[in-house]
Amino acid sequence: MHIHKYEKWWLTLGATSLVVFLIIVGISAFHYGSHPPSAKVYIDPERVDEIAPFNNPGVHKVEGKDWDYEVVFVASAFYYNPPEIEVPFGSTVKFIATTKDVVHGFQVAGTNINMMLEPGYVSEYVTTVDKAGEFLILCNEYCGVGHSTMTSMLKVVE
């Protein structure tokens, strides 16, 4: 098939750009570990309250791991437990969350922390909180009539 010279240039440029995007996100993910939240940890959604770590939601200091704190959240219509958390500026935090009922979102506004909570699955995300301030945690997946009132607060303190 005959293709115009400029069209060849254009397709080369376009395809190269796409490959560059893929290489950048691929290296960030598979070399630097910046994966989207993709945990494969399973739980019985009806027994969340009895199972560790969800029997004790909140902030826990940990030793000997790649992160300093574990933050455990339990979501249910239309609450997050705990309703507020505080972590020190500059610490590395692992967010661990699940839902007791329907699908919820877990988004920390203005950050990259954004994951789906699905019944039966544990969602995890590790990040270093390098900005101080108060960040709204909100449900960003429709879960019912109280959806837009479902919030918590992340305080990053110096």
Partner: peptide
């Protein structure tokens, strides 16, 4: 951003998604 799906398979479908840009180009 969903749990239960390996990042590798997500990435593979991301690659295929970029392929679908080409006919639009």
């Amino acid at each position: 951003t969903e749990p239960g799906i390996d990042s590798f398979w997500k990435y593979l479908q991301v690659v295929l998604t970029m392929m679908v840009v080409i006919p639009s180009l």
